[in-house]
Design a protein around this nucleic acid. Structure first.
Lengths: 110, 110
DNA sequence: TTTATTAATCGTTTTTATACGATGAATATG
DNA sequence: CATATTCATCGTATAAAAACGATTAATAAA
């Protein structure tokens, strides 16, 4: 990609795109599902459920955390994760708002 | 990535992830904005607006089309694109449903 | 204190994404 | 018919993502 051009778009577009990227892998959607069902759980439990190696799961968790969708805190030698519902809600609203704004813009023009 | 593991997740997870990937780049979100505002337009118009080369825009359009989010048909030497609102609505509903299901699963457990 | 458990990080490999210029095919215009 | 316009595709380069095994750091247990 020689040069990244992502910076040349609006903050809103970048923000929404980053969120979309966070959930653009089935493993990460599956992780959110596990966390929702159990409210919170440690990395090892997720590794047992997903068909992925421990290091790979850890990577996906890191990305979800960077995107703000989950929180994680250490509990002894373990790491306990849970969904950040507030952030998730906010992202959900943002996405819905994109859809509504597109429809609105379209209605104005036609 | 040695081996792809995406296939080992559920169809629903794969489907939603693919949709998220389609809108996971600011350029593609911007393209949707342009299409919504003008209802339909040709590739060249989008190229004039975005800070990207013609071939790059064409690639992004192809991805949006593959994801089903836009339709495109040739009009002489031009290619005219527009948003596939039905598909977009469906994806929007699917995404919203993910959020609701996560909340529901979480409510059951706590 | 030694040992085991847990998970993050490192290093590496392979695949995919992003971006561009150049080419080519199709159609429109002179 | 020759030329110009438009855009998709090709080839290429670089960056990022995805996956794994191995290592390491931290804590718990023996």
């Amino acid at each position: 990609m020689a040069i990244h051009k992502k910076e040349e778009f609006s903050t809103k577009e970048q923000h929404l795109a980053a969120f979309a990227k966070a959930i653009s892998h089935p493993a990460r959607i599956a992780i959110l599902g596990v966390l929702a069902k159990r409210n919170q759980c440690i990395c090892g439990e997720i590794v047992e459920i997903l068909p992925l190696a421990q290091s790979t799961v850890s990577q996906h968790l890191k990305e979800l955390k960077n995107a703000g969708l989950i929180d994680g805190e250490t509990d002894g030698p373990r790491s306990c994760y849970c969904i950040n519902w507030k952030a998730f809600e906010k992202f959900n609203a943002e996405f819905h708002s994109l859809f509504e704004k597109l429809k609105e813009a379209n209605a104005k023009c036609c």
